[in-house]
């Protein structure tokens, strides 16, 4: 009798998957090219999203996570631990909760790797089907974010590399600043259509381009 039921929820290659935005139709006026856009919106679908729980005060836990993921465990709200080249990031969600994002299809291997090195009281939960990532770039992104979240997105409060969760429109989102003019929103699947169309609508006045 096992303690946990772990299995790879992705089908063998060739399966047809749909992102949370597969159903969404763009209804706002968009501009013809990214160069003309104040905001460029792009979905990064199908990445692996894992919720990691554990004790930040436990040295072995911290070391294990770093060993498994190759980036250090962030110990306070804000700074994102990220290796862009490998597509791996860890975000502090709470004193005992982190969001791990890995490239598409890597979530099961990552979970196994974590379980190999971790022990004691911790948890890893796969939420890949329940979230997606929107990337926003361009000169007007900050204005769009200001129209959407009460969190202060000014560079003095929101330097590159910061990640927070907050209210977004009438829902919520994780907001990550990954480069000077590039931001990510991690949003829940069921709210994705609402939030995506909200972002497009808020961006329309600046000129919005939808990139694939």
């Amino acid at each position: 009798m096992s303690d946990l039921s772990i299995f790879d929820v992705n089908p063998a290659a060739g399966a047809k998957s749909e992102s949370p935005l597969a159903m969404t139709r763009v209804t706002v006026a968009t501009v013809a090219s990214p160069a003309k856009a104040g905001v460029v919106v792009r979905e990064h679908a199908f990445q692996g999203h894992l919720i990691l729980r554990g004790r930040a005060t436990d040295d072995q836990f911290r070391a294990g996570v770093e060993q498994a993921l190759g980036v250090p465990l962030p110990l306070k709200m804000g700074p994102l631990s990220r290796d862009e080249a490998r597509g791996v990031s860890i975000q502090w969600m709470s004193p005992d909760e982190w969001l791990v994002i890995v490239p598409a299809g890597r979530e099961f291997a990552t979970e196994n790797r974590l379980r190999e090195v971790l022990s004691g009281h911790y948890a890893v939960m796969n939420v890949s089907g329940g979230q997606t990532v929107l990337e926003l770039s361009g000169p007007a992104v900050r204005d769009v974010l200001m129209k959407s979240t009460p969190y202060d997105v000014h560079p003095r409060n929101f330097p590159v590399g910061k990640a927070v969760s907050s209210v977004f429109a009438k829902s919520s989102a994780i907001i990550r600043r990954v480069a000077e003019d590039r931001w990510e929103l991690v949003i829940r699947r069921s709210f994705a259509d609402y939030l995506y169309r909200w972002v497009l609508d808020a961006s329309e006045e600046f000129g919005v381009y939808v990139a694939s």
């Binding site: 709200m77 709470s94 969190y151």
Partner: peptide
């Protein structure tokens, strides 16, 4: 006290 930041009441 956990996020160690002021946040808006909406949160």
């Amino acid at each position: 006290p956990y996020c160690e930041e002021y946040r808006e009441e909406e949160e």
